[in-house]
Design a protein around this nucleic acid. Sequence first.
DNA 1: GCAAGGTC
Length: 862
Amino acid sequence: MKTVLMVAEKPSLAQSIAKILSRGTMSSHKGLNGACSVHEYTGTFAGQPVHFKMTSVCGHVMTLDFLGKYNKWDKVDPAELFSQAPTEKKEANPKLNMVKFLQVEARGCDYIVLWLDCDKEGENICFEVLDAVLPVMNKAHSGEKTVFRAQFSSITDTDICHAMAHLGSPDHNEALSVDARQELDLRIGCAFTRFQTKYFQGKYGDLDSSLISFGPCQTPTLGFCVERHDKIQSFTPETYWVLQAKVNADENRTLLLDWDRVRVFDREIAQMFLNMTKLEKEAQVEATSKKEKAKQRPLALNTVEMLRVASSSLGMGPQHAMQTAERLYTQGYISYPRTETTHYPENFDLKGPLRQQSNHPYWADTVKQLLVEGINRPRKGHDAGDHPPITPMKAATEVELGGDAWRLYEYITRHFIATVSYDCRYLQSTIAFRLGPEHFTCSGKTVLSPGFTAIMPWQSVPLEESLPTCQCGDTFPVSEVKLLEKQTSPPDYLTEAELITLMEKHGIGTDASIPVHINNICQRNYVTVESGRRLKPTNLGIVLVHGYYKIDVELVQPTIRSAVEKQLNLIAQGRADYRQVLGHTLDVFKRKFHYFVDSIAGMDELMEVSFSPLAATGKPLSRCGKCHRFMKYIQAKPSRLHCSHCDETYTLPPNGTIKLYKELRCPLDDFELVLWSSGSRGKSYPLCPYCYNHPPFRDMKKGMGCNECTHPTCQHSLSMLGVGQCVECESGVLVLDPTSGPKWKMACNRCNVVAHCFENAHRVRVAADTCGVCEAALLDVDFNKAKSPLPSGETQHTGCVFCDPVFQELVELKHAASCHPMHRGGPGRRQGRGRGRGRRPLGKPGPRRPKDKMSALAAYFV
DNA sequence: GCAAGGTC
């Protein structure tokens, strides 16, 4: 029997499609990567009985990047990234082993049916899948078609079965347009980002962002925030006047009338209107009207609307809201949360999900009433052909979910119930008055039936007292006419919800990527989230955008995306050549890049005003090995040391504190050592600022401290302080932390394992001898007289921390900062440890300590 | 260390 391989874009879709096509008869098992499942069943294909294997990828299989050597920032001119730098496709998520997984499943298959999402990205993934599986599938007989594409617009029985019966072919042009998009985004984004970052970080010490990034989506996103900021800044308040009149409706009630002219901006004219009306004793009714109006129930919920409400009403940022929604989805509480669709398919079972909610403590009554009296048809929304709107899939209580998960679930459920509820109906009454020559109106709303607002109370029509009944020609006594002086007020900072709307409108990002772009501009310190989730640009954000305004406004305009997308659509439609479009667009941006580089002084002028040059930032900390003057420690991200005399900058490890290390010097370059520490519960190690940036030995890399230094004789080096191989990771060595006393620690120089060894020793040294059993270096310890754990009050002991019975008792293994007790020393508690690969119990370390001192020595003299 | 797009 032949085998048909079928591949969907994500595990959940593979499951639902297989369920539909197999009519529930499939058997499932997990694939080798643990993330994807394979669903198998038998059926017919092209008129013959076959075996079906339905599985999925997890989004893109591959990602585009530059060849390794072009990722060295200090060796490559960013301008080269526009054409010379070659790119390669790498596995998007190496942990998932997707290519291997697909090949294992595809081996021996005869046909493939591609069930990827029906958009351009999906079409591109089709070819990523084909590249992986075609080499291992059975070869086709000549002329036989073996590759098929399913075209579906919703995940319903009819649609899926129809797609299966009308298979087509994958569209190469659509896939190519995505290839072009990837290459453009990569080359343009990286070139501008690297140039800006290097230029400004080399000049200023207080930018407070480790990266000055640029991208065709994130930059216009920032642009919207700064545009609003500029509007606020340039706003000048204007004074205006409003004529306010009150009439007595009866003895104890007055009506406030709205002036038909609303407001005037000229004081004298306002005064004139007041003079014309203030002596009037009565207001005459000119007309009355009563109109029944409806407030429409909401459209079914899609991702973007959910994110808007989450931000504006629940105070949850888009990134957080999305993560919460994903968790609700994987736990089965809601349907797939990434969808653009606001329209339920015709045969969608609306009553099922509704029935599940009929015993819910918060909305049982509303739901029961709907089920008894009949639900309303949801409004006609937009069908993007991806997934049904976001719908609750099972009932849940506040206690069960708790916190933000509950609040989001509650909103989704209330919204869903609202979509099948009736519109809110209310009566709008208006009375038009005349006071002398001027016209006024008074209007009020009375709710006739609350409809969906019962389940979405925040949407209710506010309760108002009804207007008095009256007729044309009636008069009411005037109680007061006065002039109010007011001022126009500036707009407020953009809310996240408004930003999402703007991004959606201009096609910046997608439902899945909008939260990422917003998160990016926050993390890069371009904007901060203020109360009410309003986005206020920082100085850095403002200067960047104003700089683009000065140099090339197109770099920050939202059209930067849509213009490119227009070109890409030509590729997708087969109306333009992929190579030509790519070449042309790259050429345009290459010119823009060169112009930007040549004009960077324009942006720099703005930077100067807000930021301080490197030489003027930071505090003197340690001495430079070249000029022996103090270098300044710049704490702002990225933290570094700057020698203003030599005009050199030395980067330091991120996240942690830096102190001078006892004025000790590196024997290689005479730089004063500094001590990096991740906190009291973490680890610390000394490092030489020069060696950290310029590795001294061949077997060392950039970013290594003394605890990884292979110097054979320096007292701070790995060679001198290394004790034994790490008990968890493959390549790390546990290194004695000479600053950790009196609570002595050894820390792995690769992973975050920390071994606490002696609490009451005043001196611990790494001895020259090694353990005969495990080859770890012996430790030479002087304990405090009063608290010595040694028998008969001895204070001095030399032994192996891993094998010596006295020392073993004193060792405790932890993880830096997190402090999970992974190990407690002492016999009798060893069972059950050592889960996972490559971990050895502390009692049995593997081969240890850098042994090959001769080769390190040789490297030293290179 | 960089983009944006999938998804886990």
